[in-house]
Amino acid sequence: MTSNSLYGPLEDVSGDAGYVAGHPERVGFFTDTSVCIGCKACEVACKEWNGLPDPDADLLKLTGMSYDNTAELGSNAWRHVAFIEQAVPQVSVLSRDGAGQLIISASAGDTDDSGQATRWLMASDVCKHCTHAGCLDVCPTGALVRTEFGTVIVQPDVCNGCAYCVSACPFGVIDRREDDGRAWKCTMCYDRLRGGLEPACAKACPTDSIQFGRLDELRVTAQARLAELHEAGITQARLYGADPEDGIGGAGAFFLLLDEPQVYGLPPDPVVTTRDLPAMWRWAGLAAGALAAGVAVAFAGRRA
C-alpha cells in the first residue's frame, strides 16, 4: 500500500497489492483498432480457452447492429468486437505528393450522393485491468484479486455473487452469470500467463490488432503507432487508457481508437469510484453522527 493506492499513477501495481519485489513485470493488451478486421477470432479463442458456456440457441437473434451480434462484454463474452458504420467526409485516398509518391490515408471508402464516404470501424473491447480497479476495490470477499502480473481476476472458488463489482466497473465489463451465480470477466488468461503463454485472444488475432506484452513496452509501441497515423493525416486517432494520470491510473488493456470513445461504447473519461471513498466515509460518519444526535435530541430529558 502506497500513497497512490486509491488514485493516481502507480508504478508497481502488484507491489502495491502485497507482492514482494521480483514479481513479474506488469503485462497488458494494446488493442490497435486501426488494423482490426472484425473477424471475432478473439471472441471465439477466448471462449474456447476459457470454456465459456454456449448460448441458448433459442435466444440467438440478429441485433441489427451492423455485424455485431455479441452486443456487449459480459459474463460469457470476455471479448466483444464493436462495429460502427459511419458517414464521413470524403478524403482523397490516392493523392500524390510533390515527389510523385502516393499518399495513403486510412480507408475512406466510396462516397454517396452527398459526397459522404463510408467508414467501418471495428474494435475488440475487453476488460481494462485498471491500475485502480473499482471491481477489485469493492469486492467484499477478496474474490477479485490483483495478480502478480498486475492483472485483475475473479477467483471462482471465492466469489459469492454479491454483484457489487458489476455496479462498480466504470466500463460495464464484469457481470454475474445468472445460472451460475458468480461474477466473471476476462482473466487475461491467468492460467496461460502462469505457463508462460500469451492470452488466447492475442495469440489468435490475425492482424495483430490485439498485442500482448509488457505494459511499459506496449505503451511505447502505441505511441509510435499513434505518431505514424498522425503523420499519415489520421488526426482522429487517439490512445485510450494509456495514460497513468487518468481516472483509473491507466489501463492494463488500452486502445488506439479512431473516434471518440463513446462511439465504441466506452466511457469518455472514467474515474475509479474509490477515488472519492475517503470523502464518502466522512459523510457517512457525519450521517451516523446525525443519527446518534437525532436520537439524543429525541430522548433528551427524563420522561415527562
Binding site: A17, G18, Y19, L136, A143, V145, V158, D191, L197
Partner: peptide, 25 residues
C-alpha cells in the same frame, strides 16, 4: 500481518488461483 493491508492482492489469493496452470501442460 503482510504487505497487502487493503486485501486486494497477495493476501487474498485462493487455492484455485495458486494452482492455476494452462491445461495444455
Amino acid at each position: 500481518t503482510g504487505a497487502d493491508r487493503l486485501g486486494r492482492g497477495f493476501a487474498v489469493r485462493s487455492p484455485h488461483t495458486e494452482h492455476a496452470a494452462p491445461r495444455t501442460e
